[in-house]
Structures are given as C-alpha cells and as structure tokens.
Design a protein around this nucleic acid. Structure first.
Lengths: 111, 111
DNA sequence: ATCACATTTCGAAATTGATCGAAATGAGAA
DNA sequence: TTCTCATTTCGATCAATTTCGAAATGTGAT
C-alpha cells in the first residue's frame, strides 16, 4: 500500500457519517446494504449520503454492486486489513511486540 | 471507544505529514523520537511539525515525555489497537470471518 | 412507450484545516 | 543569573471539505 492511498482511506473514515456508514457495512457482512437503507439508517438526505459513499468507494474501502433497482454496498475487508498492516508496518523496532501491543504479522497473504 | 474519538484519531492520521510521523514512531518503538529528530526526518519547519504532533497527541495516538532538553514522542500501540477494534466491531454479521477477512476478535483484553 | 422508483450529479454557501515566520516558553549549562 | 538550545504558540493567508435541494440518470414494471 502506498502512502497516498492510506491517506485517502483514513480521510474517508475520518468523518462522522462515513464512519458510521462504513461500520454498518462492516457489521452487515456479505449481504451489504442498499444506498437507501443506509441513508435511512443514518437519517441523511440521499444526495448527502451518495456523496459520502462515493468517497468511501473511491478509496476502495467499500464495493458497489447493482441488484435489481438498488445499489448494494459492502465493506471490503481486505482493503481494511491492508490499511491496518500499513500503519503497523515494521513496528516496535524489531522488538517482540508483547501482549499489550497490537503488532500482528504485518501482512498475512490471503490464501 | 466512542465515535467522536475514532473520528479524531482517523483524521489525525489522514494527513501526509502526520501519517509519516506516526509510522516513524511506530517503527521507532519504545525508544521513541524527539520532536527535532522527527522534523529533520520529515524535512518540515519545527512550527509546522509541532502543530501536527499536537494533533496526534490530542487524540491519544502518541505519547509525550520530557527527556533532558528534548521532548520524546512514542506511538501508543494500545490506542491504535482499540481504534482498529472499533472499526471491526461485530463484523461480518456473525459469520465466521474466513481467511480472506480481517475479522479478528474485536477486543482482546490487555492482560 | 410510459410511468414510478432508486440513486447520483450539479451548484453554491458555510465550515474546517494546513502552512510557516516570528515571538514566546521552558529546561539545562556555565 | 545569564546564555543557549529545543520546542510550542500566535496570527494571517490560502485551500479543501461538507451540506442539501433541484435536476438528471438509469432500471424495471405495466
């Protein structure tokens, strides 16, 4: 992951409505949610929400797919994971990263 | 972790210079780095860097400690960890979160 | 072909953030 | 105490982001 991509992704999450939308999608799992359902859940005008979803999508944090008349959004867990890996890259100066730390293996290759 | 705190932390990381500073601190581990050393490494005026460090610090992502004449900064791994936990809370609608996903146990209590 | 529904794009106003030089603070050395 | 070094605060300027109504787009039903 490049620095620029990480900045975009973090910036996308650093906003009240986008963060809540993203978390709902994380919790919704494979099924995802339609744009309308998210707007309703967050109590936002469709046009505002659309703006935010576009921003999340442009960073790759969420995926879009059409299903009948609606657009379904889903969280991209792999994108999230690689963002976290980027933040923790080479952590702790090579020390063992004890139990208190969050220093997991930096990049688990997807099988 | 509350939503507001997460937004602040993500926003703090969503900036070129702050992201680089944070990553250097993550890599520096326990030893940390002085404000001056970071400014030098990033090629920024001290005043600019100070502004950014204050922002990271106010979110709890980094810690400050005086050592002789310098102020030493260190990444707070626990804060980072709880931010990630917040993002992934209750992920995947209770599904098993297969190998492709980043769905770790949401909150490992620190021993 | 026509209608109704779901969502996005546009535009304009208000808010928030980044930058850096100069001056101020705070800590230790002489 | 006085001097010097390390860092932060202030202030002014410039740039980017958020908001939402109205209009446009694209999809499927009748």
């Amino acid at each position: 992951m490049k620095a620029e991509a990480a900045i975009q992704a973090l910036g996308a999450l650093a906003q009240e409505h986008r963060l809540e939308a993203f978390r709902r999608l994380v919790q919704a799992g494979e099924a995802g949610m339609s744009a309308g359902a998210i707007a309703l859940a967050l109590g936002l005008p469709n046009s505002s929400l659309s703006f935010h979803l576009a921003q999340l999508r442009s960073t790759g944090l969420i995926l879009q797919e059409r299903q009948h008349r609606s657009l379904i959004y889903r969280a991209d867990y792999a994108a999230m994971s690689s963002l976290v890996a980027y933040l923790m890259e080479n952590c702790c100066a090579g020390a063992d990263c004890g139990a208190d730390a969050a220093c997991e293996p930096t990049e688990r290759k997807t099988a």
